[in-house]
Design a protein around this nucleic acid. Structure first.
Lengths: 110, 110
DNA sequence: ATTGTATATTGCAATATTACGATATATTAA
DNA sequence: TTAATATATCGTAATATTGCAATATACAAT
């Protein structure tokens, strides 16, 4: 007991929760915000911006990469990160469903 | 060390990550999907639907309640859950920003 | 009052996450 | 080659999450 019973849930439920889980930490939200706001894709200055050590930032980046939320490419000495457009499209579609379904809800209780 | 350094991040970053974190488990996604699909607001049949014990389902419901994603009202003997419209609006607004900002992204690298 | 049904809480074990120092790896510059 | 810079990984400690049996609480019906 203790481990998540992910095998007992659907693929969709697992995929969705992996996406959300990856966004479930303030440092990773900060990273996404930084990437969104940076004119060009950012490199290693994340470490200067975030209140975390280099090792910890690297770990958070890895988690975002594992969830396919960001992708990195080697740019000379450093690495350049940006959002993964495929995942972003998927995310938009999912959220769109969520919002739509709810629009026709009646809130019969609560 | 090990505890999340949430105090080092902005209120917005924390609020957002709390929302996402609450959705970061397949059981909680399943609960949201069930509430969305149920014609009227559901009650205790979640326990029959989910592959988890009553205690565990109750715990997941509590986490969704703590994050203000769902709300429950006593309905005689049982409890009736539905989405919290305020949080849902907030969520929609945030996601809207995310999507918009990205639409004008150029993906200069990667 | 007692019994049955629905939900919540407690206590605990297993596992996962978070954070960082130290170290490894990779590229650039000299 | 050597030194400097950028990023990743390892090892480890602290903390958080997950799941469930057992138990508690709350309401309904008898």
């Amino acid at each position: 007991m203790g481990a998540s019973k992910s095998a007992a849930f659907t693929l969709e439920q697992n995929e969705l929760s992996i996406l959300f889980k990856a966004l479930g930490h303030p440092a990773r939200i900060a990273i996404i915000q930084y990437i969104l706001s940076a004119k060009s894709c950012i490199c290693g200055d994340l470490v200067d911006v975030l209140p975390l050590s280099q090792a910890t930032v690297s770990q958070h980046l890895k988690e975002l990469k594992t969830a396919n939320i960001i992708q990195g490419s080697i740019e000379g000495n450093s690495i350049c990160y940006c959002l993964n457009p495929t995942t972003l499209e998927k995310f938009k579609a999912i959220i769109g469903d969520f919002i739509e379904v709810n629009n026709c809800g009646k809130n019969e209780c609560c």
